[in-house]
Design a protein around this nucleic acid. Structure first.
Length: 548
RNA sequence: UGGGGUGUGGCCAAGUGGUUAAGGCAGCGGGUUUUGAUCCCGCCAUUCGUAGGUUCGAAUCCUACCACCCCAGCCA
């Protein structure tokens, strides 16, 4: 419908193209494979891939695998899977590790030009000598070693002749720079650790700061997009680019990261929720991970719509959860098959129904007939939702009430006849009479009723498990809590059952569903062969309960 | 006077000197509706962090101030 919202990066690129400054756009999505992708990554993914696509360029997937201690193949596989599921295809699949040889040569280049040195201070000494935000640091005693000494020491580092922590290669910039990143940042550290991709080949690994810009240059990245916390690293990024014989000159541009109300996106905190068993795993439907949202029943298109709606700026922002939920609803509204499910059954006996069950042909989506149709049975005993009957209705309630009538959607109008109460005085069974003139699609009665409710045929309905998900935390800013598990919403998952129409079994297990008047649902992929489980993705908007 | 950023309605966000400050989400009012959903229509910032200044004219330029965010890993 509406055209895509613009943002400062898009505007800048189209200006650059107009002025002939660039002829191709190359971006990259550079996750570190040390955790699962989450909604914050989705923003970056949509930006990077979206820009490349819009301007006819390329976007690589690059695993920023410079730290073997935290990375693993499990995450690499999961990230690729998530990206494909979101609907993106990378131009090239890259690994920073594939550039290790080149990066090493360039480190030698820096050394030979007097731009880097091997420091043998301990980590603690380095920290002490770095100074503070307001005080300059002190030069390392090793700072002025000769080039040849640096070179042979660095070679020793690579050859495994030095132990972890014994030395580090540092850029020789300035220990009195106001920007802390310029106080002789570490370029290489020693790690006698096996790397998921290069195995035992290396025992020195480049830092992010050293590897990133050079990797961008190797890939011909034109626009290196990252979040605002890297802004202070840009001078270092450029310092390196300027001193090395690189094939291209990428430009870093920062944007603000996604802050989502009621959501934690710190990998560390998400990991601890998983490790401590507060959720069932990275794919728990309450998790803001891609796998979690996927299992919850969010669609890739819905997530992308969300990313489009939130925009891209450099401002601090906190996105309301409704924007995510609204995006998911808006996408699912037309995508989902619509079916009947009764969450809390109340038996209804149609006392004047003397025949066997009647088959009704019902479309899966009233506005999208191409989705086909299914059969629903109407008969003497039905279930409706308990919340759709009130003995003592509040004003404005227009479902079933004593003395009243409602339409059973796609079936008939029924008129209240009697109610049987249990010993606590609540309804146990409602008796109604159906009006044969009011069959859906061939109603000649001219009758109008205020309410239409959903229902299922009691005998043929299938009982399934449902998981009703709600926001995971009780506070809007769980990320500000050191231990977010202390503010988990005890009602973030409510287990229940439902009676669903048997035709659901004819749909693909991965079909998006709407249980009419209840919410959007999706079959849980771990549903057993016995009872099926449906996860509630998101509720429907509900003007009625909001009012009352 | 460490350095770097950011401030436009409840939440996002266009706008970069020239009529009444786009749009989305939320909200409110109304219409349609066999989902109290969807859909449709309407309303919703005399004002752009604050205070001054420049100008015929400022959210856009200048000055000062205020608030908030990021930075002291051999993490990314």
């Amino acid at each position: 419908m509406s055209e895509k919202p613009t943002n400062f990066i898009r505007t800048k690129i189209s200006d650059q193209i107009k002025q002939g400054q660039i002829d191709q756009v190359v971006t990259r999505f550079p996750p570190e494979p040390n955790g699962y992708l989450h909604v914050g990554h989705a923003k970056s993914i949509c930006l990077n891939f979206g820009l490349a696509e819009e301007f006819g360029g390329r976007c690589n997937l690059r695993f920023d695998d410079t730290n073997p201690e935290k990375e693993s193949q499990e995450y690499i596989d999961a990230i690729e899977e998530d990206l494909r599921w979101l609907g993106f295809e990378w131009s090239e699949l890259c690994h920073t590790a594939d550039y290790f040889e080149k990066l090493f040569e360039w480190a030698l280049h820096l050394i030979r030009n007097g731009d880097a040195y091997v420091d043998e201070q301990s980590a603690e000494e380095m920290r002490e000598n770095r100074g503070t935000l307001k005080q300059v640091g002190f030069d390392s005693p090793y700072r002025d070693r000769s080039i040849s000494e640096n070179e042979s020491l660095f070679l020793k580092m690579r050859e495994g002749q030095m132990s972890e922590g014994a030395a580090v290669l540092r850029a020789k910039i300035s220990m009195s720079a106001a920007n802390m990143n310029l106080r002789d940042p570490a370029l290489y550290r020693i790690r006698h650790t096996k790397h998921p991709r290069t195995g035992d080949k290396w025992c020195i690994y480049p830092t992010y700061d050293y590897a990133h810009g050079q990797s961008d240059a190797i890939e011909g990245v034109t626009h290196s997009l990252c979040t605002l916390e890297f802004e202070d690293h840009r001078p270092l990024y450029e310092w390196l680019l300027k001193r090395l014989p690189l094939p291209s000159r990428p430009k870093q541009t920062e944007f603000s990261r996604l802050e989502l109300e009621g959501t934690v996106t710190s990998k560390r905190k998400l990991n601890s929720l998983v490790q401590e068993g507060y959720v069932s795993g990275w794919d728990d439907p309450r998790m803001p991970t891609i796998v979690g949202m996927r299992r919850r029943g969010f669609s890739p298109e819905g997530i992308r719509l969300f990313c489009e709606r939130i925009g891209v700026t450099r401002k601090p922002n906190t996105i309301e959860l409704q924007i995510l939920e609204g995006s998911i609803r808006d996408d699912l509204e037309s995508r989902a098959h619509k079916a009947m499910a009764v969450m809390d059954p109340l038996k209804v006996v149609v006392t004047n129904w003397d025949q066997g069950p009647l088959s009704l042909r019902v479309p899966w989506h009233p506005k999208r007939l191409e989705l086909g149709s299914r059969t629903m049975l109407f008969g003497r005993e039905l279930y409706i939702d308990r919340s759709d009957f009130e003995l003592d209705p509040p004003d404005g309630f227009f479902r079933l009430v004593p003395g009243g009538s409602v339409r059973l959607k796609y079936g008939f109008i029924v008129d209240f006849e009697d109610v049987i109460l249990d010993d606590k005085g609540s309804a146990k069974e409602v008796h109604v009479r159906y009006d044969p003139e009011t069959r859906s699609g061939q109603d000649k009665s001219g009758r109008k009723v205020k309410g239409t409710i959903h229902w299922v045929h009691a005998e043929s309905a299938e009982e399934v498990d449902v998981r009703l998900y709600d926001r995971m935390f009780t506070v809007p800013d769980p990320g500000n809590y050191e231990d977010p598990s202390s503010v988990i919403n005890p009602e973030s998952l409510i287990l229940g059952t439902a009676h669903v129409e048997p035709a659901l079994g004819h749909l693909m297990p991965e079909a998006y569903l709407q249980f009419e008047r209840v919410g959007f649902f999706k079959q849980d992929p771990a549903s057993g062969q016995g009872r099926l489980t449906y996860n509630r993705s998101v509720t429907l908007k509900d003007a009625w309960t909001k009012k009352s």
